[in-house]
Every structure is written in C-alpha cells, then in structure tokens.
C-alpha cells in the first residue's frame, strides 16, 4: 500500500484529499498543516509521496519542499496549486517537485497523478 503524506493548512482540503485517496486504498501516513510540520512528518513517516500545498502559514510549501528534497533527494512531492500561482509552481518544479495539481481537482485526477509519480 502506497504511503502518502498530506500537507495543507486547510482541514477541509486535507479531509477532501484523504477521502479521495483512501477510497483508492492509499495509506495516509500523516497530515501536516504547515511546512515545518511537513518536514518533521516526512522524516518521521518517510512517505512514498507527498501532496504539498503552496500557501501555508508558518512555513510555505516551497520552503518545505526544498528542505525535504535536501533530506531525501528522491522524495516525490506533488504540489497543490491554484490558478495564479504559476510562478511558484515553476519554482517548485525547479526545486525538485515532480509535478503539480491545480485546485480544484477531481478524484481521478489526483489519483492518476500520484500513481504516475509513484511509477517514475
């Protein structure tokens, strides 16, 4: 079972993603609501893939991404972005994010993306 870490400051988003993924038999090993927590959870759970929100309090997703990639260069991080965040998404790609999903997304969309990233 593939292990996923969900990072998003909105409890609603975390729940939405969790519901979608659990239906498809992913194992949600952790949730984090800001970048700092994300780094800690990553080290703690060592997930197969991370869904990473960009805009978060305390520490944003880009900063957390850099720290996670530093810790584990093979980390598979998928950015969750919204329209209007093109520049940040590009930066995330440059810094090692595998791909990104644009909110709002559909269930099959995110599942497919995660599976693709896992297959890389």
């Amino acid at each position: 079972m593939k292990r996923v870490l969900i990072v998003d400051d909105a409890a609603f988003m975390r729940m939405a993603i969790r519901k979608m993924l659990e239906k498809d038999n992913f194992d949600i090993v952790g949730e984090a609501e800001n970048g700092l927590q994300a780094i800690m959870k990553y080290k703690e759970c060592n997930p197969d893939v991370v869904t990473m929100d960009i805009t978060m309090p305390e520490m944003d997703g880009l900063t957390a991404l850099v720290a996670i990639i530093q810790y584990d260069p093979n980390a598979k991080v998928i950015m969750l972005s919204a329209m209007g965040q093109e520049v940040m998404v590009r930066d995330a790609i440059i810094r090692g994010a595998k791909t990104f999903v644009v909110k709002p997304f559909k269930e099959d969309h995110i599942i497919k993306t995660i599976n693709k990233v896992l297959a890389l």
């Binding site: 079972m1 194992d27 949600i28 949730e31 959870k41 759970c45 599976n115 693709k116 896992l118």
Partner: peptide, 15 residues
C-alpha cells in the same frame, strides 16, 4: 493511463 496501485485493504487510522 489506467494505473491502479496494488494494495491491500489495511487502513491505518489518522495520525
């Protein structure tokens, strides 16, 4: 693309 992850039904509780 229709890749399904193989997985068992084990489900861990929320952290």
């Amino acid at each position: 693309q229709k890749i399904k992850s193989e997985s068992n039904n084990e489900n861990q509780g929320p952290t």
